[in-house]
Amino acid sequence: MNNLEEQAKIVNATEQRAPQSDMAAASAAMDGVAAAALRSVLQRVQQAVERAGRDSQQIRVVAVSKTKPVSVIRQVYDAGHRFFGENYVQEIVEKAPQLPGDIEWHFIGNLQSNKAKPLLAGVPNLAMVESVDDEKIANHLDRVVGNLGRKRLKVLIQVNTSGEESKSGVEPSACVELAKHVNQNCQNLEFCGLMTIGMLDYSSTPENFKTLANCRSEVCKALGMPEEQCELSMGMSNDFEQAIEMGSTNVRIGSTIFGPREYPKKQ
């Protein structure tokens, strides 16, 4: 897992570099915005960890760079961060080759079966797919990983804990069977845990997070897996501190680090 204290030191050191020219000063100022935002997030994560009496090494911060250009992602990378996430296959396939290979990419969006091969072939340093929500996509990923000769791919099962039709994810009552399928029938995949997205208005996230934690207990019992080895990916920009206090091991933070998403204007 990510060492938050070490990461904060790297970010501080990056911010304190002295610019050597006006142009360098302008560039450093731009870098400083991203680095300062990352540092603030890491500090808030550390505080949430301390409130919960947890170990900071148990928490991974995934910087979600959806709609952001490679230059902005590079600023956060240069500040010492290595975990990044994307929602769309086209974006991650375009961005990953332009950035250092030691980045650990997470795919966190809905994944269609016909996009599994482009994703895995285009992003050799894809560390995890967090959004497996049925047997079909699990089977496709399993076959593609095997055909490409990649090492086992880490996956999380996405659970729709809010019951919203707009959200992807398996129903909580079906997560055990899907976890069993991945664990027993997909030899090229490594089941690592569960993921959820809280309510959009964040008014019911405690219930959503409790539901995911309950799902983990059921899955671990069924698989004979220690709960501490089963990740919980929950918490985003508006609720990551609460998620950490409720047991999250993986928080996905976009706008708080990168600023508002930038969608193309419609003609």
Rank of each mutant, 00 (worst) to 15 (best):
M236L: 09
V89D: 02
L223R: 07
N250W: 06
A37G: 05
V219D: 02
A25P: 02
K266P: 04
D134V: 03
V64A: 11
M30L: 14
F240E: 03
L119K: 01
L148G: 04
P172V: 12
V33Y: 10
M199D: 15
E228L: 12
G32K: 06
K266M: 13
V145R: 00
P206T: 07
Q7N: 15
K95E: 05
C230G: 01
C175W: 02
K151D: 15
G193T: 04
E171W: 13
N214T: 14
Q75G: 08
A35T: 03
Y263I: 12
G163D: 10
P97Q: 06
A18W: 08
N160Q: 08
K154F: 03
S71M: 13
P19I: 07
W105N: 01
V159F: 05
S56L: 04
G169V: 06
N208F: 09
V45S: 02
A79S: 11
S71H: 12
K95H: 07
S27A: 15
G85H: 00
T249F: 01
Q47M: 12
L119C: 04
V72M: 13
V89L: 04
D134A: 11
V155F: 02
S131Y: 05
S65G: 11
L212C: 04
T161D: 06
I257D: 01
I10T: 15
E164V: 11
I108R: 00
Y77F: 14
Y263Q: 12
D134F: 09
L189K: 04
L189M: 07
S217A: 15
V170R: 00
T211Y: 06
I137E: 00
L141E: 00
S40M: 11
C220A: 09
